[in-house]
């Protein structure tokens, strides 16, 4: 039960994009149509889940026993970056169709702050293995949800007649503000 409320809180209440402002770059960049939003979302879920487990293991098995927790930041970013590279390589080699739908978003993910944030958050919150797994799926699921909703709005927005200086990203950010306002209404659920 606690895990469920943790997942709901991560997806809806403490949504990474709308309350923590992480992953805004892909939020503005990839949300031009809903198909690429879903592709990006799935790729992010996979990478965060894999990378979080790896960094969790690295932290508990290497960094803590040897008292080198100060290496956390640098080792985590390297693990994430390496993980993304190897994932992309395997997808390229073994599944052309998967590469077609997800592969093109993988290079964007190394510099996606959500991945590093979740890896570090699991450690700072002191989660155990199960909680880490739940957290690393529900946080990117929230990312995907908002990305998808936003892309649907954005498709309509692009055909709207906006003033020249507001066109594109500025008006998209106003829409994001309204979405954040709507999501803040969900704060009472858990």
């Amino acid at each position: 039960m606690e895990l469920l409320s943790m997942a709901i809180a991560a997806i809806l209440i403490n949504n990474v994009v709308l309350t923590q402002f992480l992953g805004i770059c892909p939020f503005l960049g990839v949300s031009k149509n809903s198909k690429s939003a879903v592709g990006m979302g799935l790729a992010v879920i996979f990478v965060i889940f894999g990378a979080s487990l790896l960094t969790f293991a690295l932290y508990k098995l290497v960094l803590v026993p040897f008292n080198i927790e100060y290496m956390q930041l640098i080792s985590f970013i390297l693990v994430i970056a390496a993980f993304v590279q190897f994932t992309e390589m395997f997808i390229k080699k073994y599944s052309a169709s998967l590469y077609k739908s997800l592969g093109i978003y993988l290079p964007l993910i190394t510099t996606n702050c959500v991945v590093l944030f979740v890896a570090q958050d699991n450690i700072t919150q002191g989660y155990n293995l199960i909680e880490t797994m739940v957290n690393s799926i529900s946080v990117p699921a929230g990312f995907m949800l908002v990305l998808f909703l936003f892309s649907c709005l954005r498709e309509r927005l692009d055909s709207a007649d906006t003033t020249a200086s507001w066109r594109g990203n500025p008006v998209a950010l106003v829409v994001a503000a309204l979405m954040a306002l709507a999501f803040s209404g969900l704060a009472g659920i858990v």
Partner: peptide, 24 residues
């Protein structure tokens, strides 16, 4: 990993895929 990944050729039909990401 980076080096090997760059050397791995893209699968057929995916050479010219571009993400819709001119905003990024």
């Amino acid at each position: 990993g980076f080096y090997l990944n760059q050397k791995t050729p893209k699968p057929k039909g995916c050479e010219n895929l571009t993400a819709d990401c001119e905003g990024c």
